[in-house]
């Protein structure tokens, strides 16, 4: 999304009728982050600057809000995102082993991106597929019922995808 194209009234939805201008501008902030991140994969500084101008919210406030939420990133992320679920069910069924194995194979730790930007490794609280624990998501796809053998399969899949 281009910041200039951000339609505040449309994004805020039906409640626009009862809100003042400042409330509306503040109200679309998180929405705007989401759209920006969808486009750029992270929140680039210059885009946030123009967002701050457009919504008339100080840049420091913009950063303060964005950094509160785990979902927003300020650094470029890899083309593929592998996310190891560390929710309760996955933990009990050994998700840390899965994470270790992936960390080992790619030489990066959780939260890091490979230097060639092919892969970012993350953990998530719970993806809600506890029936299939332990679970990993590769980009949008959920891969469940893992064991070390299958982890290798995932790794291959990611490597082939790049």
């Amino acid at each position: 999304m281009k910041v200039e194209e951000l339609d505040i009234d449309e994004k805020i939805g039906n409640v626009r009728d009862v809100l003042g201008e400042t409330q509306k501008k503040r109200g679309v902030l998180i929405h705007a982050f989401q759209s920006i991140q969808k486009e750029y994969n992270y929140l680039p500084e210059d885009v946030l600057k123009s967002l701050s101008k457009k919504l008339e919210i100080p840049l420091a406030e913009v950063y303060s809000t964005a950094s509160f939420y785990k979902h927003f990133y300020f650094k470029l992320r890899g083309k593929n995102v592998v996310c190891v679920c560390s929710g309760t069910a996955c933990h009990v069924r050994g998700s840390d082993k899965v994470l270790e194995k992936i960390e080992e194979s790619f030489g990066i730790k959780e939260g890091e991106t490979t230097p060639d930007l092919s892969l970012t490794l993350e953990t998530v609280g719970c993806v809600g597929c506890c029936g299939l624990a332990p679970v990993v998501t590769v980009n949008e796809e959920v891969v469940g019922d893992l064991n070390p053998k299958k982890v290798t399969g995932i790794i291959k899949r990611v490597q082939n995808a790049k």
Binding site: I12, N14, V15, R26, L29, F33, S64, T65, F68, Y69
Partner: peptide, 26 residues
């Protein structure tokens, strides 16, 4: 209307949820 969260467990708490809906830190 639908509002999407952004990955903060505390936003399930009622007052934090409201803050998040308003576009503030949760």
């Amino acid at each position: 209307d639908i509002r999407e969260g952004a990955g903060a467990f505390v936003c399930g708490e009622s007052t934090a949820l409201i803050a998040s809906i308003e576009g503030e830190r949760g």
